[in-house]
Design a binder for these strands. Structure first.
Lengths: 254, 254
DNA sequence: CGAAAAATGTTGCTTTATGTTGATTATTTT
DNA sequence: AAAATAATCAACATAAAGCAACATTTTTCG
């Protein structure tokens, strides 16, 4: 058994199918190693192997959000621990939804006496387990794949509050258009959270800095203040111009 | 216990996997020390060790709650799967809070297209991950140890709805006084949920059937209908008289 | 303060995983 | 159907991680 096993399982679960060559390229190991790791996974029925490809066996219990939570786990964890260094005990925070936000919530358990408002049931649940925290769940009806709310009561709850720091995530960062998300309602929540916060921090892992392909995505506009960005790897050159205005913090050089 | 143990646990839980070398680098201690600290963690099942890596046992979605749900884990799991047999795809449910409710939520992921209203952020988060479910989180401000809400909006949300089945938990069952919980607000939520449901089912593991010691507990009163009870072991004699009115389902004989 | 205990570091050796080569089997092409 | 291509597998060499025993440091407690 190997240290790569978990990541291999995650990648296959996320993408559905992977070739041995793709995996060995991705992890930077030989194809032989991939085969050796995949073999027991196949024998235990976790994945299915055909000549030339490895397929994930469909698991109806595993929802997309949980899979995304496992993808790029290390990168998001690095990023989250770095971001948490910017937070002090006792501060009040607004946190939006998404798998990166989930990691930030996990990492925030190292802090004490926080006040949090979030529209993500996962973030709310995670942080309310920590004694001393005050957590407000914004919204009632939850979206069915990630447990986030975008209803009127969500906005009403957020607008009633005032926080020190707002922590936002994005779907991708476009080299010119900037911070993009998948739905209009997500952009609206981001704007609302930013409006009640003194500072805004974006938590963005490197996989979100994509070239200029932004089909069907919505721009986050009307931020209340100049944002900080926390990321795990140095930015690609393509994005430096857009982001030279922002303060960028890189968790891990490499 | 070493001062590094907690941090090591956290880092592994957050990132999913860590190598001994990474941990020793991170904490500034020798690799041998890391091994010595990890060894008891592995033996107690908190982490899993493979050559070259240490893996977290739980995935990050469920880790925090699982840990607090260790008590009577098997009993609650048995009970939950028995209870779920009473639920059909497409039904609407009201679910209250507590670790037993958490297990019920886990087990309910086997069902499809449920509509759920709950005052527990954990239950809401768990069930909203399942595509096809409609989940309503009742309440805004969450209690700081279990992520449950008992504020006015919680009651307002519950009262606005109508469900097929209401699933409740209790703090203990008193041989004469009946269903008891720790706080008045918990009893109020139970009553409110029962009022909007056609049927009420109590999920009660055997550890809740205590002799007549009920210091400082509050009775659940005003249930809308005769309740079903699902439990894991046969009832103690002391409770049979009180419960002979109720329909009792035992998950596991013995 | 000082001895005992616990925790950490160091060294050398053992075990395990990974990489490489070349042969074997499956798939596609002509 | 045979040749060409791609994927797989086996076997050995190498690199990496693990482990045990002893040395050293730090902590605990009388």
């Amino acid at each position: 058994m190997s240290k790569y096993q978990q990541q291999i399982e995650n990648e296959i679960a996320l993408r559905g199918t992977m070739t041995v060559a793709e995996l060995s390229e991705l992890l930077g190991v030989s194809d032989q190693t991939i085969r050796r790791i995949v073999k027991p996974l196949e024998e235990s029925g976790k994945v299915q192997k055909v000549h030339g490809a490895i397929k994930s066996v469909e698991n109806p219990m595993t929802a997309p959000f949980q899979i995304r939570m496992l993808h790029n786990r290390r990168a998001k964890a690095e990023l989250a621990s770095k971001l948490v260094e910017l937070i002090e005990d006792g501060q009040s925070l607004a946190i939006d939804t998404g798998s990166t936000a989930g990691f930030v919530a996990q990492a925030l358990k190292a802090k004490r006496n926080l006040t949090i408002v979030t529209n993500s049931a996962y973030v709310a649940s995670t942080l309310s387990m920590k004694p001393g925290n005050r957590v407000f769940m914004a919204g009632t009806q939850l979206r069915d794949h990630d447990g986030a709310s975008f209803d009127r009561t969500a906005f009403a709850t957020i607008e009633r509050m005032q926080v020190d720091i707002c922590i936002l995530t994005v779907g991708q960062v476009h080299p010119e258009r900037g911070f993009l998300v998948n739905e209009q309602c997500e952009a609206d929540i981001a704007k609302a959270m930013s409006a009640i916060a003194d500072k805004t921090i974006f938590a963005i892992d490197h996989s979100k800095f994509l070239p200029a392909t932004a089909a069907g995505m919505v721009k986050i506009s009307g931020l209340a203040s100049k944002p900080k960005i926390v990321t795990d790897l140095p930015l690609p050159k393509s994005h430096c111009r857009f982001l030279k205005e922002a303060e960028v913090i890189v968790a891990k050089l490499g």
